[in-house]
Amino acid sequence: MTKGNTPSNERRRPDRAALAIAVFLAGLAGLIFWDSSRLARINSYSGIGPSTIPFVIACGLLLLAAWTVFEALRGDFPERERQEIAPVVWIIGGLAAQMLLLKSFGFSIATGVLFAAAAAGFGRRKLWFTIPAGILLSLGIWLLFAGLLQLSLPAGPLEHLFW
């Protein structure tokens, strides 16, 4: 990551992404206020109920949001490196696919897809090779951890061939 925060002399324009972060923080605070307002008032000898601490935290978030706006306007946020979108999409897609496939297709197939997608995110896009390789690797891991070490990993059609 860049070493940021060196006071810059030239005035940059307001940092939009940083402003978005401020909005996010304020939104989080609003969410806490809303949620804790619905909690039952429970008599407690401590004088601190279930909503007191969330209230304090939400106030803190609001202050931090204001501070973030201030720094964003001054352009105090560090430079950011250019981010490539495609690899990120590959990896997130792989994780999402694993999540959705896990219950019905079992550990090996779901995790094999994740493996191939992650490799694709890092530039190896030969899916005809990486998917089977990933599934084989996952199956080996499944046999080791679920079969031998008794971890409970979801089984699917592939795993049933072995058990």
């Binding site: 994780l95 999540m99 992650a118 490799a119 995110g121 990933g134 990993l153």
Partner: peptide, 26 residues
Amino acid sequence: KPWLYAGILLFATLGTIGANPSVFEL
């Protein structure tokens, strides 16, 4: 790198699934 990080992701999810095999946790 591609294999290393694919493996890291594999193991990271393997641990989570092993501890609590729920879609929500993933």
